[in-house]
Design a protein around this nucleic acid. Structure first.
Lengths: 332, 332
DNA sequence: TGATATAATGGAAGCGCTTCCATGCCTTCG
DNA sequence: CGAAGGCATGGAAGCGCTTCCATTATATCA
C-alpha cells in the first residue's frame, strides 16, 4: 500500500513493537524513544492501516444502522443523532436503507452475521424471535430504536401516551367526534407506532366516556396523498368528525389538504393534530406531538456501545417522553 | 472468532486454496469438489471474514460520503440515491455528516488518507487545490456531487440555468420588480448553488432589459426563519418587489410566512418561486425548480466506482437538467 | 505405451497490524 | 557486591484471507 509500521520502525531505529506501543499510547516507552518514533511517523506521513488493526484486534470498529425509509423526517433526524454520536467514538457507521420487506429480511440475515460490524442499531423494525436467536448466537449486539423485542435493549417513546395526549387535547377542546388517520395497524414492516398511538386514542376515548366508532378510524399506506384520500372518506360520512388526529405530520398534511379542498376551515370546522413535529409543522401552525428524534439516536448508539464493551449486561429499556405542541390547528 | 476457512477446508477434506477458489468462483475446481466445499460451508454456517479479505486484497471495499447538513431535503434525497446504488455493489457505505467547517476540514484531512476507504463522494462541498493534491498523492479517487473542482469528476445540475428559468418565468408573468432571497453568496462552506442561481437571476434580468437592484437581493443564513426576516426587509422597501425567487424551497417557506404575516396574498400581491421541489412544495402549491437529487446520487456513485476500477481515466463531468414546476404561487 | 500438456489441488507466503514472550539493562536492597 | 525485580525493547506468532507456485492427477497425442 504505502508506508507501513516496518518503514517507521526502520526510520526510527526501533522495533515494530515499539512503534505499535507508541501508536497505542503504551506507557512502557522511554520518552526519547517515543519522540524518535513520532518524528519518523511525521516524516513518513504514516497512517496505520485500520484494516490490519481490525484483523489483529479481531474487532471491526464499525457499527451498522438499519433504517426503513430513511428519507422520512422521523428517520433522518434520528440518523443525525446516530451519526453525531458515532462520530465521537472510534467507530465507523455504515448505513442500510430499507424500503422493501425483502431488503429488510436480507439486512436482518446478512448484516449481523457477516463479520462486518461489532454491533447493529435497528430503527423502527421489530425483529422476530428467530432473528434475535441467530444474532445472539453470532454474538453481535443489537439495539432497537422505536422498535420492540423483549430480549433486546431499546430506546422508545411512549406512543400510547402520545396518542392519549393528542386525543385528550381534542376532547378537552370540546370535540366529541374525533377521527384517527393512520398507517395500517397491521403492516408488512410491523411498524408499531400507529398501533400504539391508536391504543392511546382508544384509551382516551374510553376514559372520557366517548364511544369508539370504527368508521372514524381510517388506515392506509403512509403518505400525504393517501391520508388525503382517507380524510375525504371521513368527510363523506353522514356524521363527519369535527377533529382529526393524524398518526404523523406528513399525514396531517394530507388531512389539511383534503379539508382545504372541501373549503373547510381549520380549526373552526375541523381541528387537526399531527405527530412528530417535523420542520414544516411550525410553518403550517400544525398542532402535534413532539418526540425527541435526535436524542433517541444518540441514546441508541450509547446503549449499543456500552453493550459492545460488555455484552453480558441485561437488556436495557429507555423510554423518552413525548410532548404536546399546541398550535393554531387546534386553537381553542 | 468463529469458523474460518481452515475449518471448512478440513471438513471438506480439501486445502484452503480450494475453499478460496470456490468462494471466489474460480473455474479451476472440479464440480464434485465444489459441492463438497459448499456442503461444508453450509454445515458449518461459514461466512468469510470481510476484514481478512480486505487485508489480503488490499482493498477496503468501502466508500465514504461526506455531506453537509444531511437532514436538509436536498441532501437526504441524494443520500438515498447513493445508498441504493452502493447497496447493489460489493461496497459498504460509510457516512460523514458535516455541520461545521471544522468537521469539514477534519473529514477532508482524515477520510481520504486514513486507508479506510477506496473512494470518497463529496456533496456540495468544493475542496481546495491543496486538498485535491493530497488526495491525488494518496491515490484515493474523489467524486463531487453538486460541487466543483477542475481536477475531479463531478455530477452537477445547471444552477445558472435554473436561476435563469425561475427568473424568466416571473418576468414572463409580467413582473418587473423581482427579488432574490438566498444564502450568503460567500459562505464558509463555499456552497456554490446560491451563487449560480444568482448568476442565472442576473442574466435573465439583463436579457430582458430589467435593471438589477441590489436591494432586491437579500442574503442570510439558510433557513426558513432567516428567509422570513429577509422578506420583511424586502417588503419594507419603498418599492417592494412583486415577485420573489427563493434559493430553496425551505427559504420559500419563510417568504410565504412573511407574506402571510403582512396579509399579502400569493400570487395576487406577490408571486413566489422556490427551488428544489421538496415534498411539501406540492402541498403548498409552491412553484419551484426541480432537480434530480436521487439520480445525482446514483450517478455520483457510478462515476466513483468506475474511477476506482480505472483510476487513470480523465475526470468526467455530468450535468443533469433542472425543470421548472409551475404551481399556484406563480399562477397567471 | 510413453511423453507431454492440462486441469485440479495443497499450502506457504504475505497483507499490516497487536501482543506476548524473551532479552538485556538498570535499579534497588540486603 | 550480588541477587532480584522492573523497564524498555525486539521481533515471532497470529489474526483469516488470496494468490502464486509446486505438485499430483488426468487427458491427449504420436
Amino acid at each position: 500500500m504505502g508506508v507501513t509500521i516496518y518503514d517507521v520502525a526502520k526510520r526510527a531505529g526501533v522495533g515494530i513493537g515499539t512503534v505499535s506501543r507508541v501508536l497505542n499510547g503504551s506507557p512502557h516507552v522511554r520518552e526519547e524513544t517515543r519522540r524518535r518514533v513520532l518524528a519518523a511517523i511525521e516524516e513518513l506521513n504514516y497512517r496505520p492501516s485500520p484494516i490490519a488493526q481490525r484483523l489483529s484486534l479481531r474487532k471491526t470498529l464499525t457499527i451498522a444502522v438499519i433504517a426503513p425509509f430513511f428519507t422520512r423526517p422521523a428517520f433522518v433526524e434520528r440518523l443525525r443523532g446516530i451519526e453525531a454520536t458515532v462520530a465521537e467514538s472510534e467507530y465507523d457507521l455504515i448505513v442500510y436503507n430499507v424500503e422493501t420487506t425483502d431488503k429488510r429480511d436480507a439486512c436482518f440475515h446478512e448484516v449481523p452475521l457477516g463479520h462486518k460490524v461489532d454491533g447493529v442499531l435497528i430503527i423502527s423494525l421489530s425483529p422476530g424471535d428467530e432473528d434475535v436467536a441467530r444474532w445472539k448466537e453470532a454474538g453481535v449486539p443489537v439495539v432497537l430504536v422505536d422498535a420492540y423485542h423483549p430480549a433486546l435493549s431499546r430506546v422508545v417513546v411512549d406512543d400510547v401516551a402520545g396518542g392519549y395526549m393528542a386525543t385528550q387535547h381534542l376532547i378537552e377542546l370540546g370535540h366529541r367526534r374525533i377521527a384517527y388517520v393512520s398507517d395500517p395497524l397491521v403492516n408488512p414492516f410491523n411498524f408499531t407506532s400507529s398501533r400504539d398511538r391508536y391504543r392511546g386514542y382508544r384509551r382516551a376515548l374510553a376514559d372520557y366516556g366517548l364511544p369508539f366508532r370504527p368508521e372514524y378510524h381510517q388506515q392506509g399506506e403512509h403518505g400525504r396523498a393517501q391520508a388525503r384520500a382517507l380524510t375525504h372518506r371521513l368527510l363523506d360520512l353522514n356524521d363527519p368528525p369535527t377533529a382529526i388526529f393524524a398518526a404523523s405530520d406528513t399525514q396531517a398534511l394530507g388531512v389539511l389538504e383534503a379539508l382545504r379542498e372541501r373549503g373547510l376551515r381549520t380549526p373552526e370546522d375541523v381541528a387537526v393534530i399531527g405527530y412528530d413535529d417535523i420542520e414544516v409543522a411550525e410553518y403550517l401552525e400544525l398542532s402535534t406531538v413532539r418526540q425527541p428524534f435526535f436524542e433517541s439516536g444518540t441514546l441508541g448508539v450509547e446503549l449499543l456501545l456500552k453493550r459492545i464493551d460488555d455484552p453480558e449486561q441485561p437488556p436495557q429499556h429507555v423510554e423518552l417522553p413525548v410532548e404536546l405542541v399546541v398550535r393554531r390547528t387546534t386553537a381553542g
